[in-house]
Design a protein around this nucleic acid. Structure first.
Lengths: 211, 211
DNA sequence: TAACGACATGTTCTAAGGTACATGTCCGAT
DNA sequence: ATCGGACATGTACCTTAGAACATGTCGTTA
């Protein structure tokens, strides 16, 4: 559960209300860690109960601005420094790619073209943010510098996926003209498992896994 | 919910039991879509109730092998072809990078070094799988060809992240010698939100989102 | 002044994910 | 012969995620 630490991290930048945080969470973490406002309000109350944040002020319309406490700051820091990184990549794009063989080649071609377009556009988007930050449009406070680094990851990841989607378009699975119909009624009566593990997530395990 | 479709996709390769699927899910989808056996057995029963799969045989030790039905095949295909891709990237690595400014430079340096090592190793791992498949070690059935494409994504993504982690090590946030202490007690009394959205996930929205 | 949209905070319900617990079988090695 | 480990399937419970519902305020503009 990283919503908790995501919130603490954002509040560490300065006092904020649940409403602020919901907006900002969506803005800066939406692509990487979705959270909707009911969860945020609930978590804020829990964090306040535990003393990691405290109400700084109550404004108009019942606005409650929270401030991080020393305990809260220690908590995010310990999460960042002490706990292991969970390297699981929850990417539906990749999940789907495992089943590309179930798609007719022409559908697959269209799919990959759409994916390539999406990822290129996203890469451009992050590139612009990165450039804006390099120009100093957002100042150069530590949080901005962090965001610059995060944006760079956004650029590189989306760029990689865009290039992958383009590369994949020349794979046999895509090139084949709706062949004899190898994929019309697959796997019936046939044993699966082609021997060893194919794609994998367990093996590059260096002990640094899961929070 | 893609567990359902992940299972259907795997069963489409040929009959399999819950135990087989749990193992295989971990092997081929573990890094991209974690699922543990209780969820798998539950989902299999649901899928059987709905007629997407059926028991093919009951073997030793109560082993139930499932086979995909035509309805099941139609269901995976419609998921693959009809439904929008959810492009959310749940990457804890990225989430953490937004809060790098909260880490002391030397810890951050160590962290990035570990991350770089992990991602390089993972990239190598996928590279080996890709090469094995190119050599034909697993034959060239359509499912194997899909896995080849998935492995390519694994290589490119992990490679990109490895390079990113190395790049990040030369960022000011990391280079700075534990400076005056700008990050000792951050964001107190200061307004957050530096203006516009920084890193973002909403904007490259082309309508192709969320399943 | 009335209406609308952005601000603001919640509850409730359902589904999905994850851990722990529980049970039993078959096979090979000691 | 018995013991351990891989095979095999589940239940129970708790936490997290997500969608829908519910309510009210403040400021601007028509």
């Amino acid at each position: 559960m990283s919503l908790r630490h995501g919130l603490l991290g954002l509040i560490a930048e300065g006092p904020a209300s649940g409403y602020d945080l919901a907006r900002r969470f969506q803005e800066v973490l939406g692509a990487v860690w979705p959270a909707q406002h009911p969860k945020i309000y609930a978590e804020l109350n829990r964090l306040a109960d535990e003393g990691y944040i405290e109400v700084e002020s109550i404004g108009a319309r019942g606005r409650k601005a929270y401030r991080i406490t020393d305990a809260g700051l220690a908590e995010v820091r310990s999460w960042l420094i002490e706990t292991d990184v969970d390297h699981t990549m929850r990417l539906q794009t990749l999940l789907r790619s495992v089943f590309f063989w179930l798609m007719p080649p022409d559908e697959l071609r269209k799919h990959l073209a759409r994916e390539a377009a999406y990822f290129s556009k996203a890469a451009d988007f992050y590139r612009e943010i990165a450039e804006a930050k390099d120009r100093g449009d957002y100042g150069d406070s530590p949080p901005t510098q962090s965001l610059r680094i995060a944006a760079e990851a956004g650029v590189r990841l989306h760029q990689a996926l865009a290039e992958w989607a383009i590369w994949a378009q020349s794979a046999p699975l895509v090139t084949e003209e709706t062949q004899g119909d190898a994929h019309a009624r697959p796997g019936v009566g046939t044993a699966p498992d082609d021997g060893t593990s194919p794609d994998d997530g367990t093996s590059p395990d260096d002990g640094t896994e899961r929070t």
